[in-house]
Structure formats: structure tokens, C-alpha cells
Simulated scan of single mutants.
Amino acid sequence: MSKLKTWLRLGAVGVAAVSIAVVGGAAATRGFLQHQTAERLRIDAKDGIQEAGFVKLPSGEQWVVVRGENVDNPVLLVVHGGGVPTSLFAEDFKSWEKDFTVVHWDRRDHGKSLARAGGKIDPNQGVDSFVTDGIALAEHLKGRLHKPRIALLGWSWGSRVSLTMAQKRPDLFSVYVGTGQAVDNDARDRHVYDHMLAVAKTGKHPELLAKLTAFGPPPYDPPSRWKEIDALEPVYLKTEGPKKTEGQIYRQALAMPDWSLKDLITHKDAGRIIRRQRSLAVYKANQFWKAAPLGQDFVLPMVIIQGEYDHPDFVRPWFDGLRAPGKELVILPNTGHAAIQMQSVRFGQALHDHVLPLARAWEYGRPADTPTAPPVVKPVE
């Protein structure tokens, strides 16, 4: 019996040793990959800027990353979409740093900001609260980077926040840029449903027709049921061009410096945390947000960069109704809702061509030769 106990003890020690070796090896590998990413992200330019840290905003301390090759360039504040804090994938946006000082902001319910708050979300925090945080951050950036105005980019869910920021405080911004632009969730859901139904009725996808007919058209109660329909679109239709696999995204996230495993786990779990800790009333208020109450008059240039597969025909009527000193709708071929990340170099070229000149011209306010009446601008196809 004593020999058996000895062997059991030795076996337990062996298992523990192997476990420690595996964990230690994984940690060492991750550390090496993080070092490699840090080297690729390093900015050596004499007039460059590379900063990251927490900034105290009205709803709490929030993670902000500032990167650029020349501090004299215009500042571009990125308001990320739901579930994708762009700071975690800063390497994707490196090509933008030649033209802009790019600012990545983890909103209070995402990324390192959520981890900093212990994974807890204020159930009453909605769009207006994020707008307040965003305006405070813009004011902070103006002072920190010595800029009278900054460019503002909103992606998907973040475009609700950024568009409201642009309307409330146009004095802070040189140009508004939207991608995956939110306009009216209910109307867009019906638009996508009708689009899928039309494709299904061609006879190419009888199984899709059966599923859509069984569901019926939106709106649904609860609204979250829409996700079951939304999940059908990429199965039967083009919704993105070339894109990364989930494995590539996870590997990229694991190799990101400044992000602990706790940060990453909190980020991965953010969707569940939001659903659990936020009340249904707040969820509905966010879900049913519409651009119309903001009005059609904006006193700064408006640029919408939309993926070809991201239903630009839905955004166009809202865009056509805008009255602004300059506006442009840019369509990126062969890409979709995630064009900003999945086709980041091409997206950066669109920023260079269509946004950078406006950001420079409007950095100190309306240029003297800017017409007061909005020009008729044809979309770039």
C-alpha cells in the first residue's frame, strides 16, 4: 500500500509538473508573440506619437490608444462598433497612421475599459451616456494634442454615438465619417429581410424561402429574435469580401501587447455581460435609436464609406436628405459591414482620398471659400 501511495504521489507531481510546463510554455509563447507585435507597432518617426492609457471620463476610466507618425497630422477619433474595440486590433489600422493621428477608444462597455470596471455595466448607460463620454474625450484630445478640431469616425453601433456627438458639438469636429452607418434599425431589418426574400424567391435558395416564410417579416418580439434571421444572410448571400478567420482574429488578439488574459476574457464575454447586466428598457432604447430626430442639417462635412454588400441602397435616402457644407457617399466594392477592419488598407486609402483633405481644410473651422449651400455630390462607385 505504501508503494501504491508513493506512485500516486509521484504521478500527481508528474501531472502537476507537465501542467506547469504546458502553461509556462504557453505563457512564454504568448510573451514572444506580444514582443513581435510590439516591434511591428513601434513608431520610430521623429515626430510620431505612441501612447496608451486610461483617461477619466464621466462614466469612468476608459482605455485610449493614440498612434501616428506625425503629430501635425489631423486627429481621427475612432468610435468602434459593437463587440470590436479597435484598440485590440491596432495593427490593422497601421497604414492610416501616415495620414492621421489615430485614436482608438474602448467604450465603457467594451475591452479594457470594461475590464477596468470589473466587468460591471451600469444598466442605465445608453447612447446618451456614451455621447457624453465621447464629447469629454474629444475635448481632452483637443488639449492633449493641441488641435482646434478633430475628425470623427463611427463604425456600426458606434456611428449612433458619433453621429450624435457631431450634431451636439460640431465645434469639436472637422469632418464626420460613418461606416456601417446606423440610420434606423427597424427599417434596416425589414430592408434586409425583403432583400433576402427577393433572392429566395428566384428559386436559387428554396430552403431560405421556407425559413423566411416561417419567421415572417420583422419587427419581432423580443427584438433579439432578429439575430436568427440576421444569421441567415451570410449563409446565402455575399455580406463580406475577403476576411480573416476566427482563428486569425483570436491569434491576433492573444498577441496584442498591453492586454492581459483577464482583459481578453472580459472582452470575449462582453456580449453576455451586456445582456445580463443591462435592463431590457435600455436595450430597447439602444435598439430603436434613429438618426431622424437629429435632423438633416449638419454644419460640418459628412462622408459615408459603405461596403458594397452592406446595403448602401438603404443608407442612400438618408444621406441624400442631409444638408451639409459638403457630403460624399463612397462605396467600397467587394466588401461589407466590416470593411473598416477586414479591408483596412483599402479603407485607409478611402480616408486618404476623401477625408484627409476635408480634415485639413476644416481643422480650424469653415474654410473661407466653402459654399454655404450643400453641393450635389455623386457617390463614388
Rank of each mutant, 00 (worst) to 15 (best):
Lys3Gln: 12
Lys5His: 08
Trp7Phe: 08
Ile20Pro: 00
Ala21Thr: 00
Val22His: 04
Val23Cys: 10
Gly25Ile: 06
Ala38Val: 00
Glu39Thr: 06
Arg40Ser: 08
Ile43Lys: 00
Asp47His: 13
Gly48Glu: 01
Gly48Asp: 02
Gly53Val: 00
Phe54Met: 04
Lys56Gln: 10
Pro58Ala: 08
Arg67Asp: 02
Gly68Met: 08
Leu76Gly: 05
Leu77Glu: 06
Pro85Lys: 13
Leu88Lys: 04
Trp96Ala: 06
Phe100Tyr: 14
Trp105Gln: 05
Asp109Glu: 15
Asp109Asn: 15
Lys112Met: 14
Ala115Pro: 00
Asp122Lys: 13
Asn124Pro: 01
Val131Gln: 11
Asp133Ile: 08
Asp133Gln: 05
Leu137Asp: 04
Glu139Asn: 11
Gly143Asn: 09
Lys147Val: 03
Pro148Phe: 06
Phe173Val: 01
Asn185Glu: 15
Asp186Lys: 15
Ala200Met: 07
Thr202Met: 05
Lys204Pro: 00
Glu207Lys: 11
Gly216Lys: 12
Pro217Val: 12
Ile229Ser: 12
Pro234Ser: 08
Pro234Gly: 06
Lys244Ile: 09
Lys244Ser: 15
Gln248Leu: 13
Leu254Asp: 02
Asp258Asn: 09
Leu261Gln: 10
Asp263Tyr: 06
His267Glu: 15
His267Arg: 03
Asp269Leu: 15
Ala270Pro: 01
Ile274Leu: 09
Arg275Trp: 15
Arg278Phe: 03
Ser279Leu: 07
Ala285Phe: 13
Ala292Arg: 15
Pro293Tyr: 09
Gln296Val: 05
Asp297Arg: 04
Phe298His: 06
Val299Glu: 14
Pro301Trp: 07
Ile305Lys: 14
Gln306Asp: 12
Asp313Ser: 11
Asp320Met: 07
Arg323Met: 13
Glu328Pro: 01
Leu329Ala: 11
Ile331Tyr: 12
Ala339Arg: 03
Arg346Asp: 08
Ala350Leu: 02
Leu358Lys: 06
Arg360Pro: 00
Trp362His: 04
Arg366Ile: 02
Ala368Gln: 09
Asp369Gln: 07
Asp369Phe: 03
Thr370Glu: 04
Pro374Ala: 08
Val380Asn: 03
Glu381Val: 10
